[in-house]
Amino acid sequence: MSSRHRIRVTVNGRAYERDVQGRRLLVDFLRHDLGLYGTHVGCEQGVCGACTVLLDGQVVKSCLMLAPQADGRTLTTVEGLAGRGELHPVQEAFREAHGLQCGYCTPGFLLSAVALADRGVVLEGKSLRAELAGNLCRCTGYQNIVEAVERYLRQTVGSRRG
């Protein structure tokens, strides 16, 4: 039998309290228990990064965490970037650069980009590509994703410094 646990998490600024099985994956909890379907499942093997979310501000793959591990933690999913308001600058950059096609991997890339900006690093080219290696895309060939993130980092981190 899988054990059951009462957990409290804050997701996108909102507090939730739920009962979960010990074996429940964090990504399933976010999607099917909280209805936050913007976080996607691509492999459940920790490779594709479609399930990337921010855990206390750091990117993690939510298919590689058990839901009860998130007890007491703060999470951000793609739904938390802009809420219902104007697009977040990272979303705007992806739209401008045509950094998405089918859009399935996109939430993971957006959160990876936001975490980079939060670390205050402006990367480009190969070093940026290395930082994005935890997110797979099959549509774009990455070129416009890299361009979108470069653009976003320049704007966000660059202006913060300037």
Binding site: M1, S2, S3, Q21, G22, R23, L25, D28, P68
Partner: peptide
């Protein structure tokens, strides 16, 4: 592809 049942214990 979901884990088989287990008991989750925090130490």
């Amino acid at each position: 592809m979901k884990p088989a049942p287990f008991e989750y214990v925090t130490a």
